[in-house]
């Protein structure tokens, strides 16, 4: 084994940090977009007319039976075709993650909504609210409170998944690590470093989620 040279990570610091920022941007935007679209899908599946509910179910089951990698390639190919010009890797990756995660978030949200007692919805409707108002003011606030830990756990998984943009060359943390690793021929140092960073972030985040969960269970 050749001599290890850890200082390379220090020298590549700004470049790696920029990659990490891209990973976080992808995470935050896809999380918000995914939860909003996921909520709409869950509501459609539970309350919209049958044909619409079937389409929503088909969307969820379809996306869940395909690898994320495939979805990333699909949007990387399709987004420029639709828009008519090339848009770069970030927008197509963001759309891919948002649409993909929306399917997974919607299942969590649907279970969360189903966990709210039917009486809540009936009472809201009886006070004269429309079903959208009932969702907005009565059902969703209660459901979201309960499912926050699960949504956050899914988001930790999403953060790990953002590393897959490596395959379309978007400079997230993983791709930046790999660029430096190959340019400097320092694979051992950089990939171990990447594993360490991901571990600290994801382990810390899942510990925090567990704490939130315990506090909610105690309350």
């Amino acid at each position: 084994m050749s001599h290890l040279e850890w200082s390379i990570i220090w020298r590549a610091g700004p470049f790696l940090l920029q990659g990490l920022a891209t990973s976080f941007a992808l995470l935050i935007l896809a999380m918000f977009g995914g939860i909003i679209i996921g909520t709409i899908i869950a509501m459609v599946r539970l309350s919209a007319p049958r044909p619409l509910a079937w389409i929503a179910a088909g969307y969820v089951n379809g996306l869940r039976s395909v690898p994320l990698m495939m979805v990333i390639f699909w949007f990387y190919l399709l987004v420029p075709l639709f828009i008519g010009r090339s848009v770069g890797a970030f927008p197509s990756a963001l759309i891919a993650f948002t649409m993909f995660e929306a399917a997974y978030y919607s299942e969590i949200i649907r279970a969360g909504i189903q966990g709210i007692s039917k009486g809540q919805m009936a009472a809201a409707l009886a006070t004269g609210m429309s079903s959208l108002q009932a969702y907005h003011y009565v059902v969703l606030p209660q459901a979201f409170r309960r499912m926050t830990p699960v949504l956050l756990t899914q988001s930790v998984a999403l953060f790990q998944d953002t590393s897959l943009v490596y395959v379309i060359g978007l400079h997230d943390f993983m791709t930046s690590v790999s660029v430096i690793a190959n340019r400097e021929a320092r694979l051992v140092e950089l990939y171990s470093f990447a594993a360490g960073v991901y571990f600290v972030l994801c382990f810390g985040a899942s510990r925090a989620v567990k704490k939130i969960n315990d506090r909610m269970a105690a309350a």
Partner: peptide, 25 residues
């Protein structure tokens, strides 16, 4: 905890690129 909190892509790279370097010659 270790295998759940590191992305699969990183784990594959560790097995493929790094493991042979860390083992005895």
């Amino acid at each position: 905890e270790i295998f759940r909190n590191v992305p699969l892509l990183v784990q594959l790279f560790l097995w493929y690129f790094i493991l042979p370097e860390l083992l005895p010659y």
